[in-house]
Design a protein around this nucleic acid. Structure first.
Lengths: 114, 114
DNA sequence: AAAACGTATCAGCGAGGAGTGATATGGCCC
DNA sequence: GGGCCATATCACTCCTCGCTGATACGTTTT
């Protein structure tokens, strides 16, 4: 029983961590940020983010699998869009938190620095 | 000028990514989750999270540097607490988003699985 | 002051993920 | 239908991060 509770708890935590990792990459954040304004095709994302095309595609695959973005075929383009407004909420809450902790985060060198 | 704008933009994105990475680890989430209920000393966190003591200390150092937690000495204990309610907000945002995308996140195997 | 407890630090190892380059697939237009 | 454009996939390398084990520091107790 305690075991089951533990499993449930850790499963929840693992899911949260996995979702956070989805956002924990500058490239994916750039893509999501661009898509927050308007739906965009891959080559448009490549232009705006200045990432390589395979790189963008790889991240889009990841974001698509995770359900964070959705895609619609439009002729020979494939247009991607944010899947839920909750994503926008999450991103703006992060900015709100950054208003408070930006300095500390900037200074923390325990992991990959900016 | 466009360069400056780019720098600002990417600096913002880097900060966001770095902050997200702070949350993108099961151990740190377990610690933050425990601290959301009540302030706790290190050895209490060790008990509840079942992580090793050095491991907990390392993560606490990271969270402290980032400004996500604060610490108060209490005799020979050091009590840690969440630094801002915005952190709790962020965590519940993630849960809200998971209500929508949990399946996809679970299924996505592009990075470290649960 | 010595022992015991609570916490922090450090070096080293191992694994996972991000980016690249080459290549494959698929829809469009002349 | 052949060439072209938009996108996807794959193998590989490098780098970063998390965990562990040993150890050091500091505070309290007797």
């Amino acid at each position: 029983m305690a075991q089951i509770v533990d499993d449930r708890k850790s499963a929840t935590i693992e899911r949260r961590a996995k979702l956070f990792r989805g956002f924990a990459d500058p490239s994916r954040l750039a893509i999501l940020g661009a898509l927050c304004n308007e739906p965009l095709a891959v080559h448009e994302l490549v232009e705006r983010t200045e990432l390589s095309q395979p790189n963008v595609s790889n991240h889009l695959r990841c974001l698509l699998d995770c359900g964070l973005v959705a895609s619609d075929r439009d002729g020979r383009f494939i247009r991607y869009r944010i899947s839920s407004p909750r994503i926008t909420v999450l991103l703006s809450d992060v900015d709100a938190l950054l208003d408070v902790v930006a300095e500390g985060v900037e200074a923390c060198d325990n992991y990959r620095g900016a």
